[in-house]
Amino acid sequence: MLAFEMLYRRHRGTLYRFLLRSLRQRADADELFQETWSRAIAARERYRVEARFTTWLLQIAHNLVIDRFRRSRPQASTEEAEVVFNQLDAPDDERPDHVLSEFEQRRRLQIALEELPEEQRVTFLLRMENGLGLEEISEVTGVGRETVKSRLRYALARVRARFET
């Protein structure tokens, strides 16, 4: 039990923030946070030691998030993101960290994250919040490495677009 508590305290924050920013609703985040840990406890015998625990835990959480997305609303179209991506055209001296105040920067990033299509948002969060590399994100999300890269590119373009408007 002590080992579990240590594990829980180490991962609870990052897992919760990943869920909260993915789902954008605190109630949903609370619910899926509990559900993620319940499934982790129930499936602990299937946990392979060679796998990284963070990856395994996030895999469970990601599956839950995707299920919730599918039940709640249709995904944003990729074409929409492509349009945003193509509109990116910003000068170097207008980089967001130079132009906007710190509060505004945080606010815009927050808004940008919320507006991201779900798959891109999740991928972006797995990188930003959990520090996963391409391979790990690919493992968690169950998609190919290039797909991960593509999603990250689109996500970056959208975020930047939010900062340059």
């Binding site: 923030r17 945080r106 990033l109 930003m128 930047r160």
Partner: peptide
């Protein structure tokens, strides 16, 4: 650059 901004975001924790 966005990584730096992201780190300054709030760090909500589970209740």
């Amino acid at each position: 650059e966005f990584g730096a901004i992201y780190k300054r975001l709030s760090h909500p924790e589970p209740p």
